[in-house]
Design a protein around this nucleic acid. Sequence first.
DNA 1: GTCTATACATCGATAGAC
DNA 2: GTCTATCGATGTATAGAC
Lengths: 209, 209
Amino acid sequence: MFADWPASDPAPASVAVPATDRRAARHAATRQEILDAAWAMARERGLGSLGMRELAAAVNMRAPSLYQYFGSKLEIYDAMFREGMGQALAAVGGEVDRRQGLDALRESGRRMVEFATSDPVRAQLLFQRTIPGFEPSPESYAPAVEMSGKVAALIKQVGITDPQAMDMFTALMSGLINQQLSNDPGGTRWIRLVDRVVDMFLAEMAPAT
Amino acid sequence: MFADWPASDPAPASVAVPATDRRAARHAATRQEILDAAWAMARERGLGSLGMRELAAAVNMRAPSLYQYFGSKLEIYDAMFREGMGQALAAVGGEVDRRQGLDALRESGRRMVEFATSDPVRAQLLFQRTIPGFEPSPESYAPAVEMSGKVAALIKQVGITDPQAMDMFTALMSGLINQQLSNDPGGTRWIRLVDRVVDMFLAEMAPAT
DNA sequence: GTCTATACATCGATAGAC
DNA sequence: GTCTATCGATGTATAGAC
């Protein structure tokens, strides 16, 4: 179920794909090389400081050649977003599917916070809207919708019927992530509050449980 | 106490200030005009899309003239940050000083969330670190430290001694703000959860109260 | 002192040769 | 499919008009 967004996804419709399978595979491989280099560059010099010339140099190309693989710089961001959201879905949903009830909800919270804080640049791309002009395409955003559905199902599964529960839960996790990244990057000051916050949430939502 | 960061603050040391008071006043006024135009432009086209030529045109100047008032584009961002943080301190601290106990803490939470969500661009500048190369100067950041101290005092004042209380409270407010801005800009979907979240926080921290 | 014209390096992106 | 050359736009430095 989570294999729908593999790292080596073929190119989107906006870029022409060569006819033969051989060429298509090579094209996809080069595309992935560029993406990997883009992640490395973004982590080194900041997400907003991606430069086409420098990115091209990192994969032994000149800048114009990149446009054979991506229609624009924003399309590179979109591909990164798609990749990152797929990872988020896998990280939060995968293990959680094998647990039940409160344990699963607690684990999903832990994984959400750990996933987001373990890669600040990825979190900036996925959860803040910070690149001028960039908005993820619906296809790239799809995993986020699926993940949201999974969390909603978890909440319902533990017997919480409060319609505000989902919004509160996402806000709590988002707050921990935000503070951790903003005020203690690389540390654990807010990460270690996750279990306590989830328990606080449960006490508010399902006092009987 | 909050008048220390008036909107018409004199120019920082990095830009030469004219000798006479007359000229200094005119200089400060023009500086403020530029800042106001910068806020307007940022709200219209996005914080990261501030352009020097366009900003200059908005105040009937050419781009190089702006450098008489600000040493660089990042210095404009810094002045905006300073102004915004002053407003944050005034919004959160001002009224709260006149209340006491739980009421004051609740009100500070409300005001924090309302302040941040009422101007998304300002919130992006103050609370996300999103402009490539920009970091607020210590002088501009000072109101944030003072505000943080005020909230800590509020928490202590209601009898909460838990050392994690401050981190949890800021995370809760930050999460509401984050979700509101990201997923329902202009709406109230998370804003209206503030009181409930604060109560949940109080129940966790001071069950006896 | 204030503002401008000019210039320059760099950016994302395009055209066309090979 | 990759290149060189180039375009228009950007942030910014400088020289000089008034």
